[in-house]
Every structure is written in structure tokens, then in C-alpha cells.
Amino acid sequence: MTNASSGSSLFEHLLELRTRLLAMVVSVLLVFLCLAYFAQDIYQYLAEPLLAVMPEGSNMIATDVASPFFAPFKLTMVVSVFVAMPYILYQIWSFIAPGLYANEKRLVAPLLLGSSLLFYGGVSFAYFVVFPLAFSFFSSVAPEGVIIATDISSYLDFVLKLFFAFGAAFEIPIAIILMCWTGFSSVASLRAKRPYVIVGVFVVGMLLTPPDIISQTLLALPMWLLFELGLVFASFYRPRDEQDDTAQIGE
């Protein structure tokens, strides 16, 4: 009887998971259908940081026959995922929330919201701050006689990688909170490693940005500040083992 009940419960969870995954996919597709008409405009907006610094008379090119069609729609699909992310996170939360304790719910809900806002912040920082500086640098170091004519598909792949890199880098506070909450590390231990962290963020800044001190610093400093912010928020959370012990004492 127990095995039958367990099997039925597993089937119900799988059915709910399928339903929520389907809802996520449908939400992305609905947003995509609404934005598809503006695919060319969206790509034009994405290309503005590069077009603004390209030499007069130069343009972006398409080396593949189908890329003028597929590149804007590929970008629109990515934008659709970004736009639908709050609903996707809501579906994830609705699926995992019933299996969490009250104290875990109080932690996970802000983390889901905070992680999405930080990711959007990283993407915005890359577009409005890093791209103008990076593309200006790349254009200024082109050898004499070289005509700058960037392929639209290559440009899209390049900026999407940077978007995800900066979005992931801005998740540092979330990572620190989880490390402290799970007991993997502690606030005191991370504070003691601050000098190594500062060196590390500048190394990451050097790897993710053009080889000039301005853009490297523009990434490294926010990452350092986010590390400090993560320590501040992590200090408000007790490790999970301590919370479990407190819960058991209360019982």
C-alpha cells in the first residue's frame, strides 16, 4: 500500500512538473509572438553601441544568406526568455514551495527575486556601460587600411556571451548567501579571504573585457561591491544546520 501511494505521489509530481514546464514554454512563445514583428527593431537597438563607434561609411554585414532573417529572430527569442523570466520563476517557486520548510521559504523566495533582478542588472550594465567602451576601444585599435564590417551573426553571438557573463557575475551576492546558508563557508571566512577576492575579480575583469584598464575596472569594482553586499546579506541568515537544530528544539 505504501509503495502504491509512493508511486502515485511520484506520478503526480511528474505530472505537475510537466504542466509547469509546458506553462513556461507557452509563456515564452506568447512573448515571442508579440515581439516577432519588432525583431528587426530589437536587433537595431542591440547594434547601436557598435554602430555608434564604427567609422563613417562602414556598416555591419551578413556573410550568410539566411542570417539577416535568423539573427534578429534568434535575438527576439532570447529577449522573450528574459521578458518571461518572472513568470518562469513563479512556476519554479510554485513547484518547489510545497516541499520547503517555513524558514526555507523565507530564504528561497527573496533569492529567486533577487537573482533575476541582479541578472537583469548585469545585462543592463554590460549594454549601457561596457559595450560603448569596449566597441570604442576595438574600433580605435583597428590597423590602418582595415575596414570594420562586423557580421551580424558574429556580433549577436559575441554580445549574448557577454550578457550571460555579466549576468552571471552579478549573481555573486546570491552565491555568497547560499554558501553561508548551506554551511559550505562562513561570513568570517569569506571576509578573511577578501584580499584574494579582490585580486580574483580584477583577473575576471581582465578576462571578460578588452585589454584596457578602464573597462577592466568597470567590471571588477561592481563585482567587489557585490561581494561586500553579499557578505552583508549573508550575515542575516543563519546556517541551515543551526536553523534545523532550532526547529527541533522548538518541537
Score class of each variant (00 low, 15 high):
residue 67 S to H: 10
residue 67 S to A: 08
residue 69 F to W: 13
residue 71 A to G: 03
residue 72 P to Y: 15
residue 73 F to I: 11
residue 74 K to Q: 14
residue 78 V to N: 00
residue 78 V to I: 05
residue 79 V to D: 00
residue 79 V to C: 00
residue 80 S to Q: 02
residue 82 F to W: 00
residue 82 F to V: 07
residue 82 F to T: 04
residue 82 F to K: 10
residue 83 V to R: 08
residue 84 A to P: 07
residue 84 A to Y: 01
residue 88 I to F: 08
residue 89 L to Y: 09
residue 91 Q to V: 04
residue 92 I to K: 11
residue 93 W to E: 01
residue 95 F to C: 04
residue 97 A to W: 05
residue 97 A to R: 04
residue 98 P to L: 04
residue 100 L to S: 07
residue 101 Y to Q: 13
residue 102 A to I: 10
residue 103 N to Y: 14
residue 103 N to G: 12
residue 104 E to G: 01
residue 105 K to T: 04
residue 105 K to I: 04
residue 107 L to C: 00
residue 108 V to D: 09
residue 108 V to M: 11
residue 109 A to H: 06
residue 110 P to C: 12
residue 110 P to R: 14
residue 110 P to D: 09
residue 112 L to K: 02
residue 112 L to C: 03
residue 114 G to V: 11
residue 114 G to A: 10
residue 116 S to Y: 10
residue 117 L to F: 13
residue 118 L to N: 07
residue 119 F to W: 00
residue 120 Y to E: 05
residue 120 Y to M: 05
residue 121 G to H: 09
residue 123 V to N: 08
residue 123 V to G: 07
residue 127 Y to Q: 11
residue 128 F to Y: 15
residue 128 F to M: 15
residue 131 F to C: 09
residue 131 F to R: 01
residue 133 L to Y: 05
residue 134 A to G: 06
residue 135 F to Y: 10
residue 136 S to E: 00
residue 136 S to A: 01
residue 136 S to V: 00
residue 137 F to S: 10
residue 138 F to K: 00
residue 139 S to L: 12
residue 142 A to T: 14
residue 142 A to G: 06
residue 143 P to C: 08
residue 143 P to S: 14
residue 144 E to G: 04
residue 144 E to I: 13
residue 145 G to C: 15
residue 145 G to F: 15
residue 146 V to D: 08
residue 146 V to K: 08
residue 148 I to Y: 05
residue 149 A to S: 15
residue 151 D to I: 12
residue 151 D to Q: 09
residue 156 L to R: 10
residue 157 D to K: 06
residue 157 D to W: 00
residue 158 F to K: 02
residue 159 V to G: 03
residue 162 L to P: 06
residue 162 L to I: 14
residue 162 L to E: 06
residue 163 F to M: 14
residue 164 F to C: 03
residue 166 F to Q: 09
residue 166 F to Y: 10
residue 167 G to M: 13
residue 168 A to C: 03
residue 169 A to S: 13
residue 169 A to D: 07
